[in-house]
Each structure stands twice: as structure tokens, then as C-alpha cells.
């Protein structure tokens, strides 16, 4: 592959816009992704992005700002899951799964049967990075600034709670407000990633790169900088590849990010590769153990 080829693609205005979007999202996702991984909020991030989907459809159909609609619904999700899971017998994970699948069902019905935007469903679910407009770029820029700012101001609190919620409370680090800010910011970031990678693959930007870099470092600042860099790299590579192959960019980025994770994990555990990984349990047992610990 010639370097000129690569550069050629980036001469096109819509590819340039996509590139700017990806780079801005990297800052937002890199800063927040580390917190998502540290605090075990991956399922929440996934749920909040999926929940934003009907908001997107609604806004698309009624003709108001899509990010506004998506953020409204995402916020509703944050409130619902946060509130209802505090009490009640049904587990937190069931609730997340329920709201998630309910939102998808509503979104699909709205898209295919109410607004007849059936062709759009796939775009909304899996993103259309090559068609981002100035509005989406502005949103990404705002979220990037907010994420960086909040990390700078609140990082210490998030970190304390991240390691030990009980001890943090005992130390007088009050968490509810800081936590709420984090949850809302994640919702915002999820909405910002929708246009690029879609409602179902936002974790490709929000979780996978941060988890990958985590394999190599335990200190917060290198972790965050590394995540921003890796997200930018994976996003750019995915953008270029999808432009070349005409494949959906969100899915391309997800697969690239997963591949990099596999490489990093292999390097990390190469000391005693499969034997250590497999341990002595049978695979279904290990899978079951991992899945039940999921929440």
C-alpha cells in the first residue's frame, strides 16, 4: 500500500470531516473510557448508547436535532436504571438488559413502521462516519472538552471511588454528585459516538481501547494518554479501511480494536500462554464464571 494512496483518501472533504470527528471522539472516549473500565461501567455504557437509539429515530422522524433526542432518552435511561436499581428485587443487570432491549424494540418499530425510515435503521444502529456534518463535529468537540475538564477536576474523586467505594466514603470523599457527573458524561459521550459507530458499537470506542491500554499500564495518566492515542489510531485506521473497502466504518473500527486487544493480551500473557489462560477448568465452566461475574 502506497503512502500516497493513504494520503489521497484524506484529501476528500467528507473524509477529512470524518477524521476530525474521530480525533475529537478519541479525546472524549479516551478520557472517559478509562473511567468506564476502572469503575466497571461497560454494561451501562453499552446500555446507554443502545437506549439512545429510539431518541435518534424520533428526532430523525420529527425533524428536531438528533443528538438532542438521543441525549434526552439516554438521560432517561441513566435515571431509570440508576433509580430503579437502587431498590427493588430485580437485579441491576436484568434491568439494564430490559431497558436496553425495550429501547431497541421501540426504535425499530418507530423507524420501520411509524416513520418508514427502514433504510435508515442500519445507519442509525451502526453509524455513518463518512456522512458526519458540522453539527456532529461540534457535539464531539463539546464532549471532548467536557470530558477532559471533568477528568481534570473530578478525577481524584472518581479514582478514590474506583478502587474502593466503602473506603472512599469513609475517607469523606463524597461520591454521589461526582458519580452523577460521570454517568451523565458517559451518556453524552455515548450520544456523540452514535453518528460515528452507531448505537450498538459505541463500546468499540468507549471500552475496548481503554481495556487494551490497561493491559500495559496501571498508572492513570499514561493510561489516559495512551487510550486517547490508541483510540485515535484505531479510529483513523478503521476510517481509512472502510473508505477503501466500502464496509461500515463502525464495524471496521470494532474489529480493529478487538484485534489490537487480542494482540496486546497475547503479548501480556505470553509467559505461559494458553495453559495459564485456560487454567484447569473446563471452558464452559470458565465462561460461566466470567459471565456470572459480569455485573
Amino acid at each position: 500500500m502506497l503512502m500516497a494512496d493513504v494520503l489521497d483518501a484524506f484529501q476528500l472533504p467528507f473524509v477529512q470531516r470524518a477524521l476530525v470527528e474521530v480525533l475529537l471522539l478519541s479525546v472524549a472516549a479516551g478520557a472517559l473510557g478509562t473511567w468506564i473500565v476502572l469503575r466497571g461501567l461497560a454494561f451501562y455504557a453499552h446500555g446507554v448508547a443502545a437506549a439512545a437509539f429510539p431518541g435518534l429515530v424520533l428526532a430523525d422522524g420529527l425533524g428536531f436535532s438528533p443528538p438532542l433526542g438521543a441525549f434526552g432518552v439516554a438521560l432517561l435511561f441513566a435515571l431509570l436504571v440508576g433509580r430503579l436499581s437502587a431498590r427493588g428485587r430485580s437485579g441491576h443487570d436484568s434491568l439494564t438488559a430490559l431497558v436496553l432491549v425495550g429501547a431497541l424494540a421501540v426504535g425499530i418499530v418507530l423507524a420501520s413502521d411509524v416513520f418508514h425510515s427502514a433504510a435508515n435503521v442500519e445507519t442509525l444502529l451502526f453509524g455513518s462516519l463518512l456522512a458526519v456534518g458540522p453539527g456532529e463535529i461540534r457535539l464531539a468537540a463539546v464532549v471532548a472538552v467536557l470530558a477532559a475538564l471533568a477528568t481534570y477536576l473530578l478525577g481524584r474523586r472518581w479514582l478514590a471511588v474506583g478502587f474502593d467505594a466503602g473506603a472512599a466514603r469513609a475517607l469523606g470523599v463524597r461520591s454521589p454528585a461526582a458519580d452523577a457527573v460521570l454517568l451523565v458524561l458517559i451518556a453524552l459521550a455515548a450520544v456523540a459516538t452514535l453518528s460515528a459507530v452507531g448505537a450498538l458499537l459505541s463500546t468499540a470506542l468507549l471500552v475496548v481501547p481503554a481495556a487494551t491500554v490497561r493491559l500495559g499500564t496501571r498508572r492513570m495518566t499514561p493510561w489516559q494518554l495512551g487510550t486517547v492515542a490508541l483510540t485515535a489510531f484505531e479510529g483513523t485506521a478503521g476510517l481509512w479501511l472502510s473508505f477503501q473497502t466500502n464496509a461500515p466504518p463502525g464495524a471496521t473500527i470494532a474489529v480493529i480494536a478487538g484485534g489490537v486487544f487480542v494482540l496486546a493480551a497475547t503479548a501480556r500473557v505470553s509467559a505461559g500462554p494458553l495453559r495459564r489462560l485456560l487454567g484447569d477448568d473446563a471452558a464452559p465452566v470458565a465462561a460461566a464464571a466470567t459471565l456470572r461475574g459480569g455485573r
Binding site: V207, G250, F261, T290, L291, G294
Partner: peptide
Amino acid sequence: AVALAGRVPGIGRDNAVAVVVTTLFGLGVL
């Protein structure tokens, strides 16, 4: 894949599951 990823030290099971699912789902969509 989930069983393997869950054993990678240092990232927690929740995140491991998210990584696997994102990758596989992305592959399917692709």
C-alpha cells in the same frame, strides 16, 4: 472467547465481556 478474556489479568470481567462482544458483534455486522 469470553472465558479466555475473563482470565486476562487486570481488566475485570465486565470489561472483558464487553471487549469480546463488541469485537464479535462488529465482525458480524461487517
